[in-house]
Amino acid sequence: MMAAAAVPIALLLPYVIDTYTLTVLAIYAMLALSLGLVWGYGGILCFGQAAFFGLGAYGYAVGAINIGESTIAMVVAVAASAAFAAILGAMMFYGRLGDVYLAIITLVVTLILYRFMSSTAGDAYVIGKARLGGFNGIPGFPTLHVPGDPSAYIWGDALYYLCAAILVLVLILVKLLLSSGFGRIAVGIRENETRMSLLGYDVRARKTLLFTIGAAVAALAGALFANWGEIVTPRLFGLTQSAEIIIWCIVGGFGTRLGPVLGAASMGYLKFLLGQQSLIDNTLVMGLILILVVLFLPRGLVPALAGLWDAAWQRVPARRVQRRRRDLV
């Protein structure tokens, strides 16, 4: 139903906002959805989703330069990021790290990548034909084109429709994943890890797999972002980027699929509007929003609105599997 509603919305939006902005909003929505899946349904407090986003972008740039073609580069980007997530995830989950340590470690890993990528200027840091370029990043890689026809570039409006289509596709896949046995067990693990492992499910393997899937979605968003921006820089790994992803999800509401998507789109657009004026600092507003939402709307916008809707029609709240974030710890 949601996907069916998303299609006309995606087609109508270009009449209101220009497609260049819309493209990045769709990419942000995909990125937020990846964290919404890992954190909201898997209960994994990942503070470093930006790491996989950035790796996806870098993976695409390096792949595209070396291969000279975009379709395989996309696959390379997603695969590289997912492999990194699988190793990191296995290390953390098989080490049975607590939630908060997991948060700190994912954050530290993001910082390491940021530091490392910022210091890769010079000829020593080369992957194949691609120079990593240090703080300035990698510009000038081949952008997305129709598979098999390297001269037919996908850009502008076409890139927007492609990103929107991929977003809808990812939404459907996430829905299917969550209604499958794997998704239900993931939610079960979020609710009570000990119980699920006593029931005989391998919690560590399942968490690692979910973490990897989330990273793959984030990498896909990253690869598309590289195409949109036509440059990748270490800023993709920055603390601000990590914080923003979490802000989107918190504002929208964890434990829903729509929440992160709407949160990302609305916050992304707000950031875009704030960027056009110089009176108030952008970071200041984002920080303030995060504090206020945590204090006054700890479940996020979508669950709060859904609650209002139910109350208005005097409906008994639907039996959605949803808990407040504070209970996840």
């Binding site: 952008n282 920080g287 303030l288 995060l290 710890v329």
Partner: peptide, 23 residues
């Protein structure tokens, strides 16, 4: 006692102060 919420709110504070200092 609300561990994750504290983390998020203080992250918000961090961004807020960065913005404030920039201004």
């Amino acid at each position: 006692g609300r561990l994750v919420d504290t983390m998020l709110a203080t992250w918000g504070l961090s961004l807020f102060f960065i913005g404030l200092v920039t201004v």
